[in-house]
Structure formats: structure tokens, C-alpha cells
Design a protein around this nucleic acid. Structure first.
Lengths: 129, 129
DNA sequence: GTTTGCGTTCGAGCGCGCTCCAGCACCTAC
DNA sequence: GTAGGTGCTGGAGCGCGCTCGAACGCAAAC
């Protein structure tokens, strides 16, 4: 039953303390436990949840959709089919995005080669410039 | 020596006509040729360049950096080493981003499987309902 | 007792990347 | 002549996702 300050959570998640508080305000987090003087004390469960949020954001899910998902989770097991649909749809978008990225990467590699660099040996010093 | 209206270019690139004009205004495009009545007539070279811009944006390059790159290209062959550096750095970011995306995708897949196979959830905002 | 450090709230502000609008100009068809 | 379609310009506005600031509270250190 480890507890963390908001600062520690910020460090662990890569979010800013501001953002974490904002996430709570807009309903992405359940009310966080407080210590006697009113400071947030995050538990492991909170960290896990934040971790999921961070990954959803990192894959481009809009905040509004994360709110929707959060609501569904809060609403209980009956919403699992819809949660599944939501995540599956998001997964499709991520896959599509990955494909696009790879495609663009190919052009990038090509251009880098035409400039005389070799993508696979890019860390070499400028010996062949 | 094909020519295209801004509408055709918008269709081909997926950008809006507004965005294309804006790109020109902020210096991402060289001045585009005009027909006698002042309308833009894009050539194949313009399309190629726009295509690069679109791909750079699609991989998350900030507009400011595209402006920088454009300046370098305009400044002539002497800037090729710096262009190379810029593109190579961007390539690294794209690779890192791809890695992140794949990682997040794994969690997504896992969660989707748990919704398909098990009733209980592992992550949740807080307590069971 | 006061300074320092860390946290709190609430609301305002910001940076980015567009997006839209008003008002105008031109060309073609009717 | 006029209606409709297309495009022009300059500038204002917008949605998103934070980000910051002011004013405050508590508590340990000096």
C-alpha cells in the first residue's frame, strides 16, 4: 500500500503536476485520497490508471474520449461491450497511424540518403560530408 | 507541365485550401505561379514539395521546424549538411515515436483481450462499483 | 517567530495549427 | 445583365491540451 505525492506521480508518469490535477478536475481520475493537511496521496491503483491514460494520450486518443471511457469504467461491468468497442476502434486508429508513420519514414530515409547520409549509420561523425 | 488549381491540390494532398494558402503565407511554399486572373496554378514541383510537407507534419514535425527546413532549402546547397542533420534528428523522433506507439498498442491489445476473455478489469479509476 | 518548501484552489492564459469570414474579383452560362 | 461558381486577401477566431499565476495553508527548519 505504497503512497505517492503528486510530485512523485508527475515524475513517474511524465505528466506535470498541473496536468495531473487538471485530469482529476475534468473527471479522468476519481477523487484522490488526501492526507490530513489536504495533500493528494496517490496509491498504486491511481498510478496504474494514470499509466493507461498516458498511453491512450500517447497514441493520440482525444481527452474527450478518455473521459467517455472513464465514465464507462465507472458505470460498471455492464458497459464492457462498449468499452471494448471504444478501445478496438482506437486500436484501429493506432494501427493506421503506425502504417502512415512507416510510410513517411521511408520518404525520410530516402531524402536522408540523397543528402549523403546513411540512415542506418546516422550516428557516425561527419566523415563523409 | 501539368497545372493544378488549389482545389485539386487540396484534394490530392488532403490539406484544406485554407491551409495551403496559409502554408504559402507563412513561407512554407515559394510564391506560386498565378493565372492571368490571379489564381494560383500549382505545378508538379509544388505538389512534390507539398507532399514532403504533409509527410513531415504527419510524422509530427512542428510547423516552425518545417519553416526552418524550407529556409535552408531556399538558401542553397551550402545548407545541405544542416538539412541532413535536421531530417536525421526528425527521423530519430519518428523512430522513438513508433516504438512508443507499438508499446502502447501492446497494452491496448492486452486490455482488448481481457474485455473479450475475462469479465474482471485490471485497471480502473478506483474501487469496484 | 519567520522563513522555506511543498502543496492547495480557481480561473485565466497560451501556443499550436489551423479554420473561417467578409468583401471583393473574375469567368462562364443563361 | 445577372447568377453561380471559384478563388482572392487580410485578419479574426477557435478547439485542444495543457500551463501558469495569484493567493493561500500547513509544517518543519532555523
Amino acid at each position: 500500500m505504497t503512497e505517492y505525492t503528486i510530485r512523485q506521480v508527475a515524475d513517474k508518469t511524465g505528466l506535470s503536476m498541473h496536468t495531473i490535477r487538471w485530469y482529476e478536475r475534468i473527471g479522468l481520475l476519481d477523487e484522490i485520497e488526501r492526507s490530513t493537511d489536504g495533500r493528494r496521496r496517490f496509491g498504486d491503483r491511481d498510478l496504474d490508471w494514470l499509466d493507461l491514460l498516458v498511453k491512450l494520450r500517447a497514441t493520440g486518443m482525444p481527452v474527450a474520449q478518455m473521459q467517455r471511457y472513464t465514465e464507462l469504467v465507472r458505470a460498471g461491468a455492464a458497459t464492457e461491450p462498449e468499452r471494448l468497442r471504444l478501445l478496438a476502434a482506437h486500436r484501429e486508429r493506432v494501427l493506421a497511424d503506425l502504417a502512415t508513420q512507416r510510410e513517411c519514414l521511408a520518404l525520410l530515409d530516402y531524402k536522408i540518403m540523397t543528402y549523403g547520409g546513411t540512415p542506418r549509420e546516422r550516428h557516425r561523425p561527419k566523415e563523409d560530408q
